[in-house]
Computed example of a mutant assay.
Amino acid sequence: MSGRSVDEHLAAVTPAKRRRDAETLLAMMARVTGEEPTMWATIVAFGSYHYRYASGREGDAPAAGFAPRKAATTIYLADGVDTYAAELARLGPHSTGVGCLYIKDLEAVDLDVLEQIVAASYARVTEGTFGERARDGGADA
């Protein structure tokens, strides 16, 4: 967690386009998750889930979240971007990492598709068993 408020964090985001996108994501993720946003370091987070590695290491992570960065906004998908290949094909301009979706301009993507992805990911990671399957060599690793 961070000592900085979400509003303080977003007020400092540059460039202005990234701040605009952050405000849009803030409203959308709050609506989709039903959670109040909190800061986890530089991530605007909505809810959390508990994970456990096969090694026994465990912890908590945001169930949904984003980080407005200068180069692009990062949207975190704890269940992995591969889960959403069909949706991502319809999303619009983006790039991906294993669990991250990078968007340079939210106005260039289909927000309905993005909302479907965020809602499905949040539901999946908060279902109760995801954290035990995730990242431990299970089906969702």
Rank of each mutant, 00 (worst) to 15 (best):
S2W: 14
G3V: 11
G3D: 12
R4W: 01
R4F: 00
S5R: 07
E8G: 07
H9R: 10
A11S: 14
A11E: 14
A12S: 15
V13T: 12
T14F: 02
P15C: 05
P15I: 10
D21R: 02
D21K: 01
A22H: 08
E23C: 02
T24D: 10
A30I: 00
A30G: 15
A30S: 15
A30N: 01
R31P: 01
T33H: 00
E36H: 07
P37Q: 01
T38V: 11
M39Y: 10
A41C: 04
I43V: 13
V44A: 07
A45I: 03
F46D: 00
G47K: 13
Y49T: 00
H50M: 07
R52Y: 07
Y53N: 09
Y53H: 14
A54D: 06
G56R: 11
R57E: 13
E58T: 05
D60L: 06
A61R: 12
P62V: 01
A63L: 03
A63W: 01
A63I: 03
A63D: 01
F66H: 13
P68W: 01
R69M: 12
A71H: 11
A72G: 02
T74C: 08
T74R: 08
Y76N: 05
L77M: 07
G80W: 08
D82Q: 11
Y84H: 15
A85P: 01
A86S: 12
A89D: 14
A89R: 15
A89F: 08
H94G: 03
H94W: 04
S95P: 11
T96N: 08
T96A: 08
G97A: 14
G97N: 06
G97P: 13
L101Y: 09
Y102R: 10
Y102S: 07
K104C: 06
L106I: 14
A108K: 15
A108I: 12
V109A: 02
V109Q: 04
V109S: 04
D110L: 02
D110N: 13
D110T: 09
D112R: 08
D112V: 07
V118I: 14
A119K: 15
A119W: 10
A120Y: 03
S121F: 14
Y122G: 02
Y122N: 01
V125A: 00
V125W: 14
V125M: 01
T126C: 06
T126G: 05
T126E: 04
E127T: 05
E127Q: 10
G128N: 08
T129Q: 09
T129F: 05
T129Y: 13
F130C: 00
G131Y: 09
R135Y: 15
G138K: 15
G138T: 05
